[in-house]
């Protein structure tokens, strides 16, 4: 019963942050579109049409591209790519970062020093240029993009997780639990991490946005697989017609903007909500 009331107050907390609830609803909508969208489209979205470069309005709503495909349909396909890349990359980053950071912070000593030096090594690299270089050498592909994003952003999560684990680790209740003879791994998993994870999850939301943006940038540079439709790739095509067919650039641009913004706002709201202060 108390459990429910805790979940309840948590929900109530989210509702009190309109930016948070708004962005959560928007992301929910994107997820629904990603899952159901292609199924409800009238025809295969990549089927070539006979009316290229139609402006917005009319039967195609947001117009058509140079090959006569519907922009709406392409955007809906793009949602899948963007969300998949963003969510999978952020998940991978958070898991790796949390693991590394928690071990570094909790065990300390030499292990901490070594792990943090490795993290620093990745952090001082110019991320975007590195990503471009890796993809250019290894060739395009969604899995590779996800792997590169995770590789480049885990140190940030690890550093945050380490700091939180250090902070929580020196609280009195950890000493009390240790005195009860609980094994260290159970203290780490059951006591430290649950109290350290809030900011890490919030950062994960920011990483979703960052990953979406990075994928779009790679797509824009033509470094994504030609077999898939992504928002970045749409931008890349659209910029060639920027002055004759503005809708080919503006709509994917807005989609990226809105999605990244939504994840950022949700991240902020979660950071607020998951901080220990909001529970007391």
């Amino acid at each position: 019963m108390m459990r429910r009331s805790a979940a309840w107050s948590w929900l109530a907390g989210l509702v009190q942050r309109p930016a948070g609830i708004g962005s959560a609803l928007f992301i929910l909508l994107l997820l629904v579109v990603a899952l159901l969208g292609p199924a409800v489209l009238p025809r295969h979205p990549l089927a070539l049409g006979d009316q290229p470069m139609l402006p917005p309005g009319g039967a195609y709503f947001l117009g058509t591209d140079d090959l006569g495909r519907s922009v709406v349909a392409e955007l809906i396909l793009g949602v899948r790519v963007s969300l998949a890349v963003g969510i999978v990359a952020a998940l991978a980053t958070t898991v790796v970062g949390l693991l590394v950071g928690a071990i570094a912070g909790y065990v300390g000593g030499l292990i901490d020093t070594v792990l943090m030096r490795i993290a620093e090594f990745f952090q001082v690299m110019p991320t975007f240029i590195l990503a471009v270089a890796i993809i250019a050498l290894a060739g395009p592909g969604l899995t590779r993009v996800i792997a590169v994003i995770a590789l480049l952003s885990w140190p940030q999560t690890a550093r945050l997780a380490r700091g939180e684990v250090l902070r929580v680790g020196q609280l009195d209740f950890i000493a009390a639990v240790r005195s009860l003879g609980i094994p260290e791994w159970r203290i780490l998993l059951g006591e430290v991490i649950p109290n350290a994870i809030g900011p890490v999850i919030a950062l994960g939301m920011l990483i979703v946005g960052y990953a979406i943006l990075l994928e779009a940038s790679l797509g824009y540079l033509g470094l994504s697989s030609p077999a898939i439709v992504s928002w970045g790739r749409m931008l890349s095509v659209g910029q060639r017609y920027l002055f004759s067919a503005w809708w080919l650039s503006v709509f994917p641009g807005l989609a990226i903007l809105a999605t990244v913004l939504a994840f950022n706002l949700l991240g902020d709201a979660l950071a607020d909500l998951l901080s220990p202060r909001s529970t007391t």
Binding site: M2, L171, D172, F173, A175, A176, V177, R178, S179, L180, G181, I182, P183, E191, P194, N195, P276, T279, T280
Partner: peptide, 24 residues
């Protein structure tokens, strides 16, 4: 050690920091 240390228990100054806030 884990079994033995149960024989000596602490009470701390700040009762607010003495408990995992996420446990009942």
């Amino acid at each position: 050690l884990r079994r033995a240390r149960r024989g000596i228990q602490p009470i701390f100054q700040d009762p607010a920091a003495s408990f995992n806030p996420r446990r009942t």
